[in-house]
Amino acid sequence: MKSGKAADDGNVGKARPSTDHLSEPNLKDPHVILSLLEADQTVAAKQRMRFGRRNLSFGAKALLWGLRVYVVAMLVLVVISVVRAIHSVP
């Protein structure tokens, strides 16, 4: 779970003395790369730090189930509609 993300944002971009003055950054230096990216922007950091499951309230579950039923019902109607349309073509 990521926390304190907003607090990190303020620091990003301020501490970049190693790159701001250069015409080209030395991207062979891992520190330069890490100084340019955000806390969880590297592939390794993203693999290590994952968002955990959230607890869905009853309302949220009801909403998702309702929309799921809606989509399935509508897809059946789409098939009916298209079959009718195809049969109506002279």
């Binding site: 790369i33 340019l36 922007q41």
Partner: peptide, 13 residues
Amino acid sequence: LTHEDVDRARDRW
């Protein structure tokens, strides 16, 4: 670090 990180860092720079 991956190739992806290096390219993204270049874009960020």
